[in-house]
């Protein structure tokens, strides 16, 4: 199969890769580029473990073709911390034990960051609906929701 040559930007870095025309963005991130933070829970858009943003929009990397990323800006969990300094959401998830096995966590963090960027003061209901496409089989969600609400409050206080 003829490979396509794609030029894109991932976490602020200009990036080039070769991909098959029917390969997903998730496969290229994980297998081609070694960015294994995005997880594959289902491969069918149901679990959100593969959440990334593409041109600022939250999407499932398993439902995007790698070829579609030509000229776009991709953000993954690997771009969330600033060097060694964790993003406030990452810090809060640790402090509040908002994770157990951690498989859902990168997707939860990427999705929650995207929420707080567009709505710094969400209600609990808004957080629950925003994250409805991020499944967690371990925590029962409460700690995750509280961590996001707490981070939002902290970030508003700091701003």
């Amino acid at each position: 199969m003829a490979k396509l040559h794609i030029s894109t930007t991932i976490n602020g870095e200009p990036t080039e890769y070769l991909c098959a025309p029917d390969e997903t963005m998730l496969d290229v991130l994980r297998n081609g580029l070694g960015l294994t933070g995005s997880k594959e829970g289902c491969g069918s858009g149901d679990c959100g473990a593969c959440s990334i943003t593409m041109d600022g929009r939250l999407v499932c990397a398993c439902l995007v073709l790698a070829a579609e990323a030509e000229g776009s800006e991709i953000e993954t969990i690997e771009g969330m911390a600033d060097g060694e300094a964790l993003h406030p959401l990452q810090q809060k998830f640790l402090e509040m034990a908002a994770l157990q096995c951690g498989i859902c966590t990168p997707g939860m963090l990427v999705a929650a960051k995207s929420l707080l960027e567009q709505n710094p003061n969400p209600t609990e209901t808004e957080v629950r609906y925003w994250l409805a496409g991020n499944l967690c089989r371990c925590t029962g969600y409460d700690k995750i929701i509280r961590a996001v609400m707490d981070t939002a409050a902290d970030m508003r206080g700091a701003a």
Partner: peptide, 9 residues
Amino acid sequence: IGSTQIQGR
């Protein structure tokens, strides 16, 4: 339709 992620597309 679907979740926030699905709505993005």
